[in-house]
Design a protein around this nucleic acid. Structure first.
Lengths: 149, 149
DNA sequence: ACATAATACTTGCATTTTGCAAATAAAAAG
DNA sequence: CTTTTTATTTGCAAAATGCAAGTATTATGT
């Protein structure tokens, strides 16, 4: 078997490319991290600052400033939690939801493009494998510890 | 079928984590990009600046400075090409090779750890799938265009 | 009850990273 | 032998980073 690491190194790099060029929506430039933030806010149910920053593995101070930027861009809203006023709850503005949807479409289009070079069986196999990988990574705490399922 | 993008978003994020914390070798902190640079220099046969920067998709000016840093760290050597003195050829110093080897070991250890949560059949399926993915991504020019096979 | 600690988040730097524009230097083309 | 093209490096100026310190709010201990 070939070098396992090479396979993964190149795959992750390619997805880096994919992400890098996916993030433009209606004349707005969205950085890779911003796109992940939008994605994660929508994905979680009314998350706090800390929940999102932890999910993404970014320093909370850097994250705080990234949220400030996204608020200036009118994509994200920050609401104090009535139950615990230390906590600030994040949500997408209607504009933010639009941007997130556009990025989602673009990403899915890229993925469709990639899968168009496979037959249906290969495609199913690959998708099942990615699921297996995600599950396996979730099980280990020696690396890749994102707190999401 | 679930959302295709979600699967990939989380996978790539997890590998981002993996890379971020993998890169310490003998008291030296190696950033994610630096690790990719070391990897790519070793992978290609006596590459030029441009070849590596292009493979990694980083701006050549940023790349130039990253190489300067790696040279100060005594991990990378830059030699003018005798055939074309505009070109500078990159190689790893013995120290750089050590660091690259250490990172390689760590990455493979992580991957082994991940695969330890699968049976042999699942492992083989996943590895075959990653190969399929890389091949499919290589075939498309709408995204993820890394100039490596 | 009230001082002390813990938590969630924000700001102050000081450093690093980024990328466009412009500079340099060498080869290729006309 | 001038003009273009190619490979790489610097000059900024803007953005991102992270530690330490600050603010505000809740939890804990006596």
């Amino acid at each position: 078997m070939e070098n396992l690491r090479e396979l993964f190194q190149i795959m992750t790099r390619r997805f880096g490319f994919l992400n890098k060029y996916c993030c433009i929506s209606g004349g707005r430039e969205i950085s890779l991290i911003q796109s992940h933030i939008l994605y994660e806010i929508e994905r979680q149910h009314k998350p706090s600052m800390q929940q999102v920053s932890e999910a993404l593995g970014t320093d909370i101070t850097t994250f705080s400033r990234q949220i400030q930027t996204l608020m200036k861009m009118n994509l994200v809203k920050k609401t104090p939690d009535p139950e615990d006023r230390r906590v600030h709850i994040l949500s997408l503005t209607p504009e933010g939801k639009e941007v997130a949807a556009t990025i989602d479409q673009q990403m899915n289009a890229y993925l469709d493009e990639i899968f168009s070079h496979m037959n249906e069986f290969e495609k199913e196999t690959v998708i099942r494998s990615i699921k297996l990988l995600n599950e396996a990574m979730a099980k280990t705490d020696k690396c890749c510890t994102t707190p999401l399922g």
